[in-house]
């Protein structure tokens, strides 16, 4: 079974970093053969919103954000890795591995 991850990305202006971080995470996940769903909370609002079901299915949550995550209570019983929005753009592999390490080290 493939590893399953969900992520939320958001930056202060919400037009560039938010979407580049999402892209970087998806690209890296595909390379590694993981499944990832990324919700972007940009200037135009929430896109690809993660459902309750997505939250149940995923093993771990990545917040790549410089701002507050909207509707954060959805993730209240999940392990969350919180990093600046620039982190996955610089090194998505490290972010994803750190997130998975959160669940693997239990």
């Amino acid at each position: 079974m493939k590893r399953k991850i969900i992520a939320v990305t958001a930056c202060a202006t919400g037009i560039a970093h938010t979407f580049m971080a999402a892209q970087a995470l998806k690209k890296e996940a595909q390379k590694k053969g993981y499944l990832i769903k990324v919700e972007t909370q940009g200037a135009t609002g929430v896109e690809n919103e993660l459902t309750e079901k997505d939250c149940q299915i995923a093993e771990v949550v990545i917040f790549a954000v410089d701002t507050k995550v909207r509707n954060e209570e959805r993730f209240s019983n999940k392990k969350v890795l919180k990093v600046p929005v620039a982190a996955p753009i610089k090194n998505a592999e490290k972010v994803i591995e750190e997130a998975l390490a959160l669940v693997d080290n239990d």
């Binding site: 930056c11 202060a12 202006t13 919400g14 954000v65 410089d66 701002t67 507050k68």
Partner: peptide, 11 residues
């Protein structure tokens, strides 16, 4: 993060 959130709503 809190300050940037405030700024993003103020812009």
């Amino acid at each position: 993060n809190h300050v940037l959130t405030g700024i993003s709503y103020m812009i």
